[in-house]
Design a binder for these strands. Sequence first.
DNA 1: ACCACTATTGAACGATCGTACAATAGTAAT
DNA 2: ATTACTATTGTACGATCGTTCAATAGTGGT
Lengths: 206, 206
Amino acid sequence: MGFEITLKKKTDRLSPPERRSQLVEATLTCLMRDGAEGLSSRKICAQAGVSVGLLNHHFASQIELLAVAYEAISLRYHQALETRIDNDLNNQDAPIKTLVACAFEADIMCPDQLRAWVVFWSKTIDAPVMRAMHDTINERLHAFLVTVLAKSLPQHNEQQLRVLAVEYSALVDGLWLDWSLNGNNQDDSLWQTILNQWLERTLALA
Amino acid sequence: MGFEITLKKKTDRLSPPERRSQLVEATLTCLMRDGAEGLSSRKICAQAGVSVGLLNHHFASQIELLAVAYEAISLRYHQALETRIDNDLNNQDAPIKTLVACAFEADIMCPDQLRAWVVFWSKTIDAPVMRAMHDTINERLHAFLVTVLAKSLPQHNEQQLRVLAVEYSALVDGLWLDWSLNGNNQDDSLWQTILNQWLERTLALA
DNA sequence: ACCACTATTGAACGATCGTACAATAGTAAT
DNA sequence: ATTACTATTGTACGATCGTTCAATAGTGGT
């Protein structure tokens, strides 16, 4: 006896940064599980295992928490892509090949994530805090794509790279939307094939 | 006096089909104006100028009304495209050129429409009635795109056309998403340019 | 041991939600 | 005129929503 004392946590109190990130994590879990219905202060706090009032102690409002969650899921996606690029030693000279190859891998883009993104988009249109966060996120991903494309297509100028980045981003988003909404009733390789063909044609322009 | 008697409607009663389409119209208005917050039985009925209870008299539930509204906005988009093609006498042999040219025109794709579509997508993921309607809508638009592409690229086979249709649809959706979410802070012609380049490259494959 | 501070709780508030339902009003047939 | 039918109304119900706030409990410094 007495051993479990050192194993059990003596308290449930966390530092503000820890609690905040825990609430952000619970938000993403709820949104990916229940979509728009998961955006509920009570459900989020229940998921985090804390009481309702704590949300407004660590965040000014629900929408501020949502904005932080938006940044979190975007950064996670961003870093997953960077990790793939760093680990793919075969395509260091053309990292766009790595992006295309892993675009539809399960942990990069699972249909569950669309549940969450649709909520983020919905709020981006109307809520100013979400709009500001969306602009930040979008600019960050756009700049990342430009650097990836710049390495892959060194002979292109800045303007051409920016256009290509918008095109690639739009194509991936659109394919992801179709893929997630239409379920897996179609051949899984169709979307990957389309992306591969885009890559071939783009590299052929060089 | 007495003239206004013939001008005024004697009654507010409408036939079920008329009332149903009026409620559908009110639904689209609310969704395009207020997004997810516009999906409210009370707001929709207020927009239609009828009382709350009437919704459940003409529709089994709110989600059934939403499914009919989903089909309505999709058919409207579909028919707008067909009208453009019929009226564009210069590109009867390559109607895909017409689609690309009008893709970002105001009444084809205004940012307000994204407010509604995001709601439809959100419910498509979870509600079975919406999923069934989405499948119908998607199949119809896909078949339409295939016929348009078939006329424009007669030397392609069925399988190639189907892939091209998915690619075009995804690209347009993705560009539309970016265009609507990022507002008009960027150059308006960027997205049109990308679509034009896609068209040139695709036609060059012939 | 006491104090100031704050993370945490949970009840409470007012608002809104979708739907059900009894009551009313208009219509068409007899 | 009466009857059968139904489109329409508006209230009511129970549930859930986001947020507030007084009360409580744990923490770190003295």
